[in-house]
Design a protein around this nucleic acid. Structure first.
Lengths: 207, 207
DNA sequence: ACAATTTAATAGGGATCCCTATTTTAATGG
DNA sequence: CCATTAAAATAGGGATCCCTATTAAATTGT
């Protein structure tokens, strides 16, 4: 019998690289080393397996990223670490590039609308997490009262999605972090230098 | 006989909405009102049709956007208009949401690697266009000499890709433009207000 | 060790994938 | 008006899609 978590890990990796439509049940059963009936008795259907693989993958990253974001570091620095962690996730050498969720099912066949709604809801949830953290900062006086936290969250959401896309196109970790450094100059109240960002250090940032 | 441009327009719309893998040749022939042999004699193959539909669509937008970007407006203002035009393209009411290229083939089956390379090259080309414009500005003293134009171009490229993703998820035009306004505060030398951006006007910006 | 039950493997059904050989229809030329 | 060429429609080939009914193997209980 197949270990459930091992199967989900294998499935997640395939879906991550090839997307929902680009991954066949034959790919999945072959990679897991099982026969088709086992896939269906264990996971229900291809769509249900995708849902479980997404949950499984997200659960692994969420605890660490939530800790970063909800820590009592200054929000600007917490956000920096949060984005850097995502950049690291986008460029793991032994994993597919990009984010499994950010770039999933944006274009899709009509018959896969429910799958697309699922990934869209996950993206929206991660934006709402950012917004909630920004709202807390407004309440605590760390951000100006007039801050448009919704748009600010969607702005960094766009950065996250753009990083994933560029990682899929081959961008390296250092590039994504330089990109983050620019995005961070848009932080309310920050005043960016007008002299390139190539002198910033990413590996041993100290707080 | 089928008019070639009409066919490409119909094909582009389908590929735009459903992606390469999510669009079948049956969808295409049905939408064009032709039989399969006509598709293959006119366009060669599904992949070749996709390539031609991309070229066809890009050609339509490129002239206008190139004019905006290469105009002799201050670069900051030209870039604003350029991004606004893309936001408009992402949210046309009678067209699929998002950008046909930005969100295309990021995840794909192994057999469609050549298609993914094609769309990645198009995305890279549009980033290089931005970078070239930024380099020109450096040469003309409009941007500081030390500006990291490559990363700056990829930053706005990420914004463009993020906008497309969020448009696919239902974002409206006004939201994308508020998002652009935040991205523009990252422009070298700019100093953003710390008071939300909700008071900005988008429809009658004067230069 | 034999029977009962559970697990795995095979085989395949019905639909759709991309593409094309063949036939039918239409248009053109003498 | 008939012969020739060109266009469109049908029909289908070989592969793959997601999923499952059935058969074979392994495990369990007595």
């Amino acid at each position: 019998m197949l270990d459930r978590d091992v199967g989900l890990d294998i499935a997640a990796r395939l879906f991550w690289e090839r997307g929902y439509e680009g991954t066949s049940t034959a790919d999945l059963t072959k990679a897991m080393g099982i026969n088709p009936p086992t896939l269906y008795s264990t996971f229900g259907s291809k769509e249900e397996l995708y849902r479980q693989a997404l949950d499984f993958s997200i659960a692994r990253e969420n605890s660490r990223r939530s800790e970063i974001l909800q820590s009592n570091l200054p929000l600007y620095e917490a956000l920096s670490l949060y984005l850097y962690d995502i950049a690291d996730g986008d460029t793991q050498p032994d994993k597919p590039p990009g984010c499994m969720v950010s770039t999933a099912a944006l274009q899709h066949a009509e018959e896969n609308t429910s799958v697309a709604r699922m990934t869209a809801a996950l993206r929206e949830a991660s934006i709402q997490t950012l917004k909630a953290r920004f709202d807390r900062a407004v309440g605590e006086g760390e951000l100006p009262t007039a801050t448009d936290t919704d748009t600010l969250a969607r702005f960094y959401g766009a950065i996250i999605q753009g990083m994933s896309a560029q990682a899929c196109d081959g961008a390296c970790n250092a590039l994504l972090k330089r990109l983050i450094d620019i995005a961070l100059t848009a932080w309310p109240g920050k005043r960016q230098t007008s002299t390139g960002n190539s002198d910033k250090r990413h590996l041993d940032q100290s707080f």
